[in-house]
Every structure is written in structure tokens, then in C-alpha cells.
Amino acid sequence: MAELTLPRPRRLRWLRPGARGTVVAATVLVVAVVVCLAVPVLWPLDQSAVALDQVGLPPSWAHPGGTDDLGRDVLHRSIYGLRVSLLVGVIAAVTATLVGGLLGGVAGLLGGWPDRILMRVVDTVAALPHLLLGIFIVAMLRPSLGAVILSIGLTHWLSTARIVRSELLSLRTRPFIDAAISGGASRARVLTRHLLPHVLPKIALATTLMVPHAVWHETSLSFLGLGLPPHLASLGNMINDGQRSLLTGAWWASIVPGLAVIVVTLAIAALSARWRDHLDPRVRAELDL
């Protein structure tokens, strides 16, 4: 009888077509984070300094991203802006997840009338355009990082609340929860030992999927003049300021911060999507083939 031999994997798993994008996205994100952390230490920026003798210079060795209409280095400020955007993106996404997780958790665990009331609140907030609602919240407060975070956090908790609620409602009716209750488990034990461990990975995934959206929101609010004070570097502020330079042909003043938003948010979105696929056993089975 012929000997049965299994085909050897021809390429390493992480080099396969699906995984190559993940490696690129992870590299981009790591480089972005390292640069954001290192640059302020190695090459600090005086945010209010202007250099009127260097206005509108195109990209060169001295200024790789060119200079803006006030003679400020565009790449240097973009890195500072990216730092703010990532920080706001992550904190706002976590805030939104906490709000959504808490409300969705209460609705899913209690069911009945608390669930009905909370879900009507979700429907009502979802019916409002969330950018307008975010603008309304931030307009009532003084322009600051905290206001932007609060505005994003209070308008983006809906999807997390829905995910947590539906997961809990479905888990609660599963026989293994009945078995736990029948075995003597207290409410707290059922929650911490059997419900949360199933919900937490999904909450974590929802948070990472929200980060690029929150970064985009921070940029939009700053672009509309509702984010950080104008002299502070933020990607939205810079793209807004860059519009004026476009008329004089200085495209780099808005393109460089714009690219930073696009590249970093795409990298985070790609990694989140990959993680989501990894959590889905059906997709995982295909990925591991």
C-alpha cells in the first residue's frame, strides 16, 4: 500500500496572502505609535512658534512635509497631531464602550421593562445624526481634548450597547447557564464566570473597530473648528488650515496630515477586521487550513 504523505505547507502561515496585509498594518501601527512616543522626546515642538521667513516651503530635506502658511514644519506638526488623534481615538472608544457596555449589560441582564426603556433610548439617540449631536455636545463646552472625548463617547455607545445586550439575552437562555444556576451558582458567579468571559472579547473587538471611527470624528470636529484650540497641532486643525494653502498651490499642508489619518485608521481597521475573523470559529477554521 502506498504511503500516505501529507503535503507540506509551502509558505509560513503569516506570509500567506491574507496575513500579509496584517503584517503591513501591524508594522504601520507600531511605527506610528513609536514615532508618536519618540518624537516629542527627541524633537520637541513649540506649538505656538511661527517662522514667517519660511512660509509655504515645499517638501525638502530640511522640511520633509514642507511648511504651512505660518512657516511651521508640516510633518513635525502632523506627528503631534497624530498623537492627539490616536490618544483621543483610543480614550473616546474606551469611553463609548464603557457607556455602551454598562447600559447594554443592564438591559441584557435585567430584561423586561429596564430593557425596553433602554432600547427605546438607544433608538432615539440612533435616530439623531451623531455628528450633529457630537457638535452640539462639544459646542456647549470649552474646546478641549476632554470635550472632544466626551462628545465622541456619548454619541458612539449605541453599537456596543446593542452587541452586549443581544449577546447577554442570547447567552441567558443557553442550557449551560441553566446548568450553572441549577448547580448552585450565584448571580455574581453566573455573570463573572459564564456570561462576561463570552461577552468581553466581543466588547474588546467593538472597541478596536471604533478607534478609527473615533479618530475620524476627532479630525472632523477639529476640521469644523470645534476640536482643539487652533494653535495646537491636531490633524483636523491642520487639514482645515491647509485648505487656505491649497489655493496657493501648497498641497502638502493638507495632504500630509490627511495621509496620516487615512494610513493609520486603515491600519487599525485592518487589524480589527483580522481579529474579528480570528474570533469567528467558522472563519478561523478556514484561516488555519
Binding site: P175, F176, D178, A179, S182, G183, G184, V190
Partner: peptide
């Protein structure tokens, strides 16, 4: 029913469900 019944009473009645897959926490 459920948690309103003291654990000492609930544990006096064991249950074996039809589907072991659904009755076992996969983790």
C-alpha cells in the same frame, strides 16, 4: 424560581439536558 430559590435547595435537584454541547460552557 432560578436565583430566588436558595442554592442549598436548587442543588438538591440535578438536571441532565438533552444536548451536552449546549449544556457545557465551551470555555
Amino acid at each position: 424560581h432560578g436565583h430566588r430559590v436558595p442554592a442549598s435547595v436548587r442543588t438538591r435537584i440535578g438536571v441532565l439536558f438533552q444536548s451536552p454541547r449546549a449544556a457545557a460552557d465551551p470555555r
